[in-house]
Design a protein around this nucleic acid. Structure first.
Ligand SMILES: [Mn+2]
Ligand SMILES: [Mn+2]
Ligand SMILES: [Zn+2]
Ligand SMILES: [Zn+2]
Lengths: 135, 135
DNA sequence: CAATAAATTAGAATAATTCTTAAATACATC
DNA sequence: GATGTATTTAAGAATTATTCTAATTTATTG
């Protein structure tokens, strides 16, 4: 991270999703898309940016994460009322939620299988199936 | 609903859960525990109370629903960032979430089966397994 | 290098929820 | 049933996450 090659990768990654690679988008993308799976909140990203001396604003972090989610680069995960999580792991998978730590952890893809889905109401299709195991 | 017998039932229901059956608790319980399964928000309950000429306050609806949930008379269901749902159906079951209508619907108990749960981290136990099918 | 479009930002606005505190109600004891 | 004490209720303030607004800055196009 921080080197020219990965910056170039992140730039292409945004462009391929139709997102213009502006400075703060590249900065935030650089924090998030480093190859490791993450579940971040807006506050997490603001703090990561601060530590990396990236000068930005709360509004821009919201804008950017929402744009990434809309473009399919992040997946929004809702497990508690207050705060939204954004997941960099785009593969089909489910989550442990550590209730006392407010923290998500991936359950590897394929580990969990959901069986016996009933018929859907007419005109509906499945947008997503989310399994949360609260521990 | 509204008759002496079901009022008595609701009163016992609260007492058996260690909740003192005060006037507004009985009123709200009367709205919720009528034998039909419901998924309500705070706003729903405020509106139901208004229609039933029950005089109460926003704070009391929050207090009461939170108390009922803590006592196990309601189950809190979180499927979207902003608003909490409270479920009167206490049996083990999962949900369809109608994304465009902000509405929950029960998937009958037993219809869905979750297979292949991996081992839990040491010292953890399952508090709940929640499956949400977004449609 | 203009002209134009898009992005960024600070701060205001909104929405759900919790907190504070005073008044009302419920409960226990006589 | 009256009285004293504990609990509940409720109005409004406070808090928190998020979105909106509008002005400035940055990027793209010609
Ligand atoms: Mn939290
Ligand atoms: Mn909603
Ligand atoms: Zn994940
Ligand atoms: Zn339900």
């Amino acid at each position: 991270m921080g080197n020219t090659e990965s910056n170039q990768n992140v730039k292409s990654y945004l462009q391929n999703s139709g997102i213009r690679p502006t400075k703060i988008r590249l900065s935030i993308a650089g924090l998030l898309f480093d190859g490791t799976d993450k579940h971040v909140t807006v506050d997490n990203v603001i703090e990561m940016a601060r530590l990396s001396k990236i000068k930005t604003s709360v509004a821009s972090v919201y804008n950017t994460l929402n744009q990434f989610a809309a473009a399919g680069l992040l997946r929004r995960v809702t497990v508690e009322q207050g705060k939204a999580f954004f997941d960099t792991n785009l593969s089909e998978h489910h989550h442990f939620f550590y209730e006392d730590e407010d923290r998500l952890e991936d359950i590897p893809m394929g580990a969990i299988q959901v069986e016996g889905l009933p018929d859907l109401p007419a005109g509906r299709s499945i947008k997503a199936i989310e399994v949360t195991v609260r521990i």
